[in-house]
Amino acid sequence: MNVHRLPRLVLLLVLAGWVRVGSADTGQLREVVQMNGLNVVIFTAPTPLRAGEVEVVTLVTVEATGRPVLDYQLDVRVRSKQWDTEALSLLSMGVPDPGTRFAKKATVLLATPGEWELSVEIQAPEFDPVTVVVEVAVGNPHPLWWQLLPWLLAAVPCLGLILARDAITQRSRRRFPAS
């Protein structure tokens, strides 16, 4: 073997490590289910969940071969566990995720903080439908920046103290130059 090819071979091996990866992390992992011949992985974004618009992303592969399934229909139903009524159940249809082409995403509105139930239904051709129920805890919505203004400006009084200290020190140096 030609030793000059060794670095190239190492480089190829390294690249092969990456090529092997069909990265599909599209948020925080919520559930992994093998059912009806399919492997369904469910993610949510953003991280962590806050009241407001939330993305539910699914990655579906054939359990036996690992081949990604692309042409499936994704429906997500959401229900607040505090308001235990079907009337508040909302449905969102999934669309292909432009960022991660193996996955589909559905955008749902989780209007209030608390416990919510996401019912994810996958209908793939040649496979029986798969329904996965995921329970998620949703936090308070992000406060607006002006509501945190005292926090944001907390540095200002500290700078004032540093300046006051400096002024006092300068004054004492002028009064007692020897020190």
């Binding site: 992992l29 991280t47 962590p48 995921v134 540095a155």
Partner: peptide, 28 residues
């Protein structure tokens, strides 16, 4: 495996305040 644990709990309400405080300390 309980995959729901792989995910995060809702952010504690104090976390944003702590983050702002840490950045402010860094600035000062």
């Amino acid at each position: 495996p309980a995959w729901s644990r792989a995910c995060c709990a809702p952010t504690p309400d104090w976390l944003l305040g702590v983050e702002i405080l840490i950045l402010n300390i860094g600035f000062v």
